[in-house]
Amino acid sequence: MGEALAAERYLVDEGLATVVFLALRLRKPLLVEGEPGVGKTELAKAVAAASGCELVRLQCYEGIDVHHALYDWDYPRQLLHLRGGGTGALYSEEFLVRRPLLEALERPGTVLLIDELDRADDEFEAFLLEFLSDFQVTIPEIGVIRSDRPPVVVLTSNRTRELHDALRRRCLYHWIDHPDREREVAIVRTRRPELPEALVRQVCAFVEELRWLDLYRVPGVGETLDWAQALHTVGDGELTADVAERTLGALLKAREDVERVRRGHLEELAAKARDAVA
């Protein structure tokens, strides 16, 4: 499993590889939580690519309902159909607009990503319960639609809200952590092969130290990638306090954090990172 994902340039540790493997084998939805920027959404994309499946993505937001998530009727077309003197059933598959959930259900072999579920409200979560346990939906005008080969479902949450236990019970659970330094180096090397290895190592050492500081917003792998790219563009292949200061905005996204690192630790951290690699 790990190799298959690595082929899609997504590197996992043994734990995540095992859990993804189990989710695929047991046909259970996988609930992934973790700090922002650890690659939760990327995981679903990589799983889809690795298994050769199509990715269907549902981005959640407050107030999302059945008509946005599951299906809708194409009223304008129905109206035209009537006006044009058409006959036949108005509520048939012909006029059905498929939204992501229905699409994932009807098309065999898809990976369904339900992204940032914590942004949706309780009502939608309750609706998902039925969907996730039976992989079938009822459309009153048409009937029950079910799938012989249910999609692989990945749900992500940033924990801005606690998800219900009933939903958690239907899923396998995994918490994605920030990677350790070696893995992060490997990730950056995989994703940005054009960057010099020495710089990547320094960057990852720097970021690892940074994560130990009590920052307001701890940088994730996504930020590490951006910052490494920025350093490469601005600097000359070496992590110096000067270049770091100019590009810090790519790594730290809260004013307090930038100021704090700038004031106290920059020189020292940069030197430490260089030493760690040398």
């Binding site: 043994e14 734990g15 095992t18 859990v19 189990l22 958690r168 659970y173 918490w175």
Partner: peptide, 16 residues
Amino acid sequence: REDVYWAGRATLLRRI
């Protein structure tokens, strides 16, 4: 141990 640990953690643990 690793395999059993992760299988158990994925199925029995619901929040970090």
